[in-house]
Amino acid sequence: MKSKRAVFLFAVIGIALLAAAAWRAFYGFDWSDESYYAALTSRIYAGDVPFVQVWDIHQTSALLLAPLYSLYRAVNEACGAILFFRFVFIAFQLFLAVFSFTVFRRKVNLTCALIISLVIFIFAPYALPTMSYNTMLVGFMAFCALCLYRVDDKAYRFPLTAAGAFYMLAVISYPVLIIALPGFVPVLILKARKHNLFA
């Protein structure tokens, strides 16, 4: 497919998906899980001490969201907090998709990079498009994997450091994820051999 035509076609698809995601954010109220994600963050914001006064097993993900929620509360009451987190998620995904495109564009053809970034943008686990330990797990792991994939002869220190930082954020979001560390060993070995890193 010609580059200009591909860019135009996927720009139209991308804008349509963004509009659909924004429209969809206004629909559906979940009494349980989604309210839980927001309430947990609200509790940390209210000043309850993590691990002492808060015993929820997912509280570490709320620690990451509490600063954002503080910004929201600086200008709002708790009113509309669930909708706020849905739009934060859309912004998070948009950023991830753009980053994904810039990384894949260096390695694969344009159409491929565009499709992958759009798939990453539109995906939401459990059809719950909001900031949660599930979505942050996927998002930060994607950032981490993209940084590792980005490593080459010219750029390796910053991508490797960033990959480590994103993995840390993923583990904070979902602590059991610490056991996923061995999953990164093969790519590190491949990259080290290919680009003569750590020599």
């Binding site: 797990l137 996923a180 790519v187």
Partner: peptide, 9 residues
Amino acid sequence: PALFSSLAV
């Protein structure tokens, strides 16, 4: 990493 993440979940 996806496989290991899935295992963790």
